[in-house]
């Protein structure tokens, strides 16, 4: 970035564990960011238990399940990709990452259709159908849009990270004995997966 960084700090050792620690600490902040919303979800679900059940029945369990499988599989391919890179199977590693990007993209496409369907029915903030819903249902959909929306944003960020990793591997910047950035991107992607693991039952299954 500048002279000092390259000239004077350049000789300090690469610290993979430190780098991973930084990533983990960041993941904990992400976890608590969603944690704040889970507190809200738990509180409102407690207050409006019946309304939440009614509203949850109107979400499409099939799309939710397909998306769960997509994310789980994309998590697997990221983990495999690191293992492949360590075994110097660079091309295989890149293919696995590309598969992850495709699966993540498919997740977003599904999400798009799901949201569009809801919006088509007039269920969105200030939408025409909202006036007919009970307070609890309005809150449910409020949380639904914010939580899945924020999660989708994280999916997009994760995909960009992984896209960069593909470039890094192809340029030889991430190699079999220097893969910490790939591992960090992987950690981020797994976190996105974990958040979905909780969002899925809470919004789609509890009815």
């Amino acid at each position: 970035m500048n002279n000092e960084a390259t000239l004077n700090h350049g000789h300090s050792h690469r610290d993979d564990l430190g780098s991973k620690m930084g990533m983990w600490l960041f993941l904990l902040t992400e976890l608590l960011l969603f944690g704040g919303m889970f507190i809200l979800y738990a509180s409102y679900r407690y207050m409006y238990a019946d309304n939440f059940k009614v509203a949850a029945m109107h979400l499409d369990t099939l799309i939710g399940s397909v998306n769960t499988i997509l994310l789980l599989t994309s998590s697997l391919t990221v983990a495999l990709s690191i293992a492949a890179l360590q075994r110097k199977q660079t091309r295989f590693s890149v293919y696995l990452l590309l598969f992850t990007i495709v699966a993540g993209g498919a997740f977003l496409v599904n999400k798009y259709f799901e949201w569009s369907a809801k919006i088509g029915h007039g269920i969105y903030p200030k939408g025409p159908e909202m006036a007919n819903l009970s307070d609890g249902e309005v809150i449910f959909y409020g949380l639904y849009y914010v939580m899945t929306g924020l999660h989708a944003l994280h999916v997009i960020v994760g995909l960009v990270f992984i896209g960069f990793m593909v470039v890094f591997i192809l340029k030889g910047k991430q190699t079999f004995d220097n893969f910490q950035r790939l591992e960090n991107a992987g950690l981020y992607w797994h976190l996105v997966d974990i958040i979905w693991i909780f969002l899925f039952p809470l919004f789609y299954l509890i009815h």
Binding site: L25, L28, T29, E30, L31, L32, L33, F34, G35, G36, M37, L40, P125, K126, V138, I139, Y141, G142, L143, Y145, V146, L150
Partner: peptide
């Protein structure tokens, strides 16, 4: 590290309520 994210999301929700009328 462990407290700021909670404020972060709370503030985001205020913005979401003001901008989109989401009920939270």
């Amino acid at each position: 590290l462990l407290a700021t994210p909670i404020l972060g999301i709370t503030l985001v929700l205020i913005m979401a309520e003001r901008l989109f009328g989401i009920g939270i």
